[in-house]
Every structure is written in C-alpha cells, then in structure tokens.
C-alpha cells in the first residue's frame, strides 16, 4: 500500500480537502445515516494533519514514533475514515461499508476493528484525557511524537474536558495540541442557545494553554497554526478554529439538522456538483 504523499503546498492541501469532502458525502449517502455537518466542518483541519503535519506511516500504523490523532468528537468518523483511506491505511472500497453490519467502519470509531484508529471514541468528552495520557507516556519515553486531539464546541460543555484541560496545563504537555472545531452548532441548536460556551479563548487561557484563533477553513492559517503550535514550549496548545458546520455544500452549511442526517441521493448530486467533482 502506498505511503502517504505529504506537502505543505496550500493548493495541494485544498485539493485534498475537496476530495475528502467528496468521499465523506459519498460514504454517508451510501450508508444512509451518519454525521454530515461535523465531518465537513473539520475536513480542512484533519486534511492538513494527515496530508501535511503528522508524521505517520499508513503501512505501519503502530510505528512507535508516529504522531497521534484522537478524534474526541467521534461522530465525525466519516472524516477520519476518509483520510485514513486516502492516505493508504486501507483500501478505499472499504468506505462503502460504513455502518454496515460487521464492517470495521463502525458508526463511531473502534480501535479494535480498524488500523489507524488510536482509541475508540463516540462518547463525547473523553478524548482529551486520553491524549494527555499519551502525551505523558511519550514524554516519559523521550519520544519526539506529538499528540493531536479534535474536539467539538458542543463537546466542551462536558466537565471532563475541563478536568483534562487542567491536567494538560498542570503537567505542561507541550507535546499536545488540542483543536476545537468552533462551528457554533450542536444537536439541539446553537451552542449559544443550548449552553453558552463563550468566552472560549479565555477559558483555555485560564487553564494555562497557549491558544491560536484561526479560520478553520483557511488552509494557510491552519498549517501556520499547526507549525507554530509545535514551537510552543512550556504550555499545551489549543487551536480554536472558527468553522461552518456542513462547510463546502451550500444546502448543508450552518444547518443544524444536518448534524446527524446523511445526504439523500438528490442532495449528494447537488453536493458533488458544487464540490466540482463526480468523486473520481
């Protein structure tokens, strides 16, 4: 299986992100259920991680020095599966089995069933603690590897996230980078209405984190933040990425109902047209 082609070239990454979106939508439509909005909102960030920033070896998923990615917002599984397939962890045809009985592509990621998934997630609020543990373990081993953890903005309403935020600050985990997908929406509506999370940046700062505030769809800003975060010593880094839920497809953008709805056949056609590809 091919090892991943990585580049910092912005045009290359934008092209990959478009392909990632197309694959996400195709697999969701095929599955008939799954999480569209939150997979699309984080697509640029996760593309930048897998196609540029992270040191990883798709042909050797357990390579000890690999950088780790924890998808704390496990419902964005289609996004994770797509980048894993496109970077060569498994054959792309497997994407057609999403959510099907017996498939390793479970509704939420299962590390026991699929190479490349570091740990099973799906119950929100737990990923950052796991990322902390990995960062502590890697530091004990004097490993150069870094740990990345993606959280949703609704997810940070979970108390455990702030226990973990405190831990990362206390243990000075500068080999850790949290990324918060600030798409403003959760299931029951806008975060602002369901349970106010603002001011987000001040919260992370207060827990002794170094923060970056970026446009989560601007590839240049994403890769710059990822590069800068690596240089921050003495604090964990959090990239607070302002995003649009359902980004890339006008009929899904900013629509709370597409949190957990898969595209219909007709919607998929519209989407593919907009994304400028039939998926090939």
């Amino acid at each position: 299986m091919a090892t991943v082609t990585q580049s910092r070239d912005i045009e290359f990454l934008k092209k990959q992100a478009r392909t990632v979106r197309i694959e996400i939508l195709k697999m969701l439509a095929q599955a008939g259920s799954g999480h569209t909005g939150g997979s699309l909102s984080a697509a640029d960030i996760v593309t930048a991680l897998y196609f540029y920033k992270m040191r990883h070896r798709p042909d050797n998923p357990k390579w000890p020095e690999r950088d780790r990615f924890i998808l704390s917002k496990g419902h964005a599984a289609p996004l994770l599966y797509t980048v894993l397939a496109l970077t060569g962890y498994f054959d792309k045809s497997l994407l057609n089995t999403l959510r099907k009985t017996g498939s390793p592509l479970q509704g939420h990621p299962s590390s026991k069933m699929l190479h490349g998934v570091e740990v099973s997630t799906g119950s929100l609020g737990q990923g950052l603690s796991i990322a902390n543990g990995m960062a502590l373990g890697l530091r004990l081993d004097k490993s150069p590897a870094r740990v990345y953890c993606l959280l949703g903005d609704g997810e940070i309403q979970e108390g455990q996230v702030w226990e973990a935020a405190m831990t990362a600050g206390h243990y000075v985990l500068d080999n850790l980078c949290a990324i918060v997908d600030l798409n403003s929406l959760q299931i029951d509506g806008r975060c602002e209405d369901v349970m106010k999370i603002d001011p987000v940046a001040e919260k992370w700062k207060a827990f002794n984190w170094h923060i970056f505030e970026i446009d989560g769809h601007n590839m240049e800003e994403i890769v710059t933040a990822l590069d800068e975060a690596e240089k921050i010593k003495g604090k964990p880094s959090a990239i607070l990425a302002k995003t649009v839920k359902g980004k890339g497809v006008s009929i899904f953008e900013g629509k709370v109902e597409y949190h957990g709805l898969a595209p219909t056949k007709e919607e998929l056609e519209i989407a593919l047209k907009e994304l400028g590809g039939n998926g090939k």
């Binding site: 000890p64 603690s129 796991i130 543990g133 502590l136 373990g137 004990l140 226990e163 206390h170």
Partner: peptide, 28 residues
Amino acid sequence: PDRFFNMGISEQDMIGTAGGLSLTGKIP
C-alpha cells in the same frame, strides 16, 4: 515520582489519562 501522576479530584480524567498512558506501552 516520575512515574506517579496525581490527577487531582478528577476520576473521569484519571481513567482517560490511564488509557492514554497504556496506549504508549505503559502499565497504568
């Protein structure tokens, strides 16, 4: 002391952190 982590009064975080440590080959 280097291999002991007091997590403070946060049991849920302690469990997750232990999980992460085990994923780097430690026995927590």
